[in-house]
Amino acid sequence: MKTHTHWTNTPDTARGASAAIGNFDGVHLGHCAVIDIARTHGPLGIVTFEPHPREYFAPHGKSFRLMNAESKKNRLAKIGVEHLFQLPFDAELAAMPPEAFARTVLKDGLGLSHVVVGADFCFGQGRAGTAQDLVRFGKEMGFDVTIAPLLKTDVGISSSSAIREALADGRMSHAKDMLGHWHRIEGAVNHGDKRGRDLGFPTANMSIDGLHAPKFGVYAVLVDVLTGDHKGSYHGAASLGVKPTFGANVPCLESFIFDFDGNLYDEHLSVAFVEFLRGEEKFSNLDDLITQMHADCDKARRILGALT
Rank of each mutant, 00 (worst) to 15 (best):
N263G: 05
H83T: 15
L66P: 08
L179A: 00
Q86P: 00
P149W: 02
C122T: 14
G118E: 11
I163A: 04
G42R: 01
F260A: 10
F256I: 06
D209V: 11
Q292K: 15
D154N: 12
H294T: 07
R127P: 02
Q132S: 10
G22L: 08
F24V: 10
K194N: 12
E281N: 09
L289A: 02
G192H: 13
F246V: 09
E50V: 04
A94F: 06
H114G: 02
I37F: 03
S160A: 14
E186N: 06
G196D: 09
A148N: 12
L199H: 07
K73F: 07
G111Q: 07
I157H: 04
C122E: 07
A131D: 03
F57E: 07
F273S: 13
R15P: 08
L179C: 02
N74H: 13
R184Y: 01
D266W: 00
H191L: 05
K215Y: 02
G247F: 03
A94I: 08
G196S: 13
G210A: 03
L240P: 02
A100Q: 12
V115T: 08
V117C: 06
K194L: 09
K231I: 10
V117Y: 07
A162E: 14
G236V: 08
C252R: 15
K107C: 11
E275K: 15
P244N: 09
C252V: 02
N9R: 14
F24H: 01
A175E: 02
F246A: 12
G241E: 02
M206F: 08
F143I: 05
I257S: 14
G61D: 04
D298F: 01
L240D: 04
G196T: 07
Q86V: 12
H235C: 11
T291L: 09
H28A: 04
L269V: 09
N23Q: 11
R136G: 05
S159M: 00
F137V: 06
F137L: 01
G16S: 07
V271D: 13
F276E: 12
S159A: 14
P43D: 10
H4F: 11
I79V: 15
T308G: 09
S63H: 14
E165M: 05
A95E: 15
E165D: 14
T130G: 05
P43V: 11
G200A: 08
A204E: 06
T227L: 03
D298G: 01
R164M: 12
L240Q: 08
G236F: 08
A69P: 01
L76Q: 13
A38V: 11
R171A: 14
H28V: 04
L289F: 07
G61N: 01
L286W: 03
F101E: 01
F137S: 02
A188D: 06
F143V: 03
V27Y: 05
A20Q: 12
C32A: 10
S207C: 07
D12H: 08
L150N: 10
G305W: 08
G26H: 07
T227N: 04
F246K: 11
M172F: 09
I21V: 15
V117A: 07
G22I: 10
A69E: 15
F256Q: 12
S284V: 03
F273V: 15
H52F: 13
V189A: 02
H60R: 14
I290G: 05
K215N: 00
G111F: 06
K243P: 00
H6W: 05
L84I: 15
T40V: 06
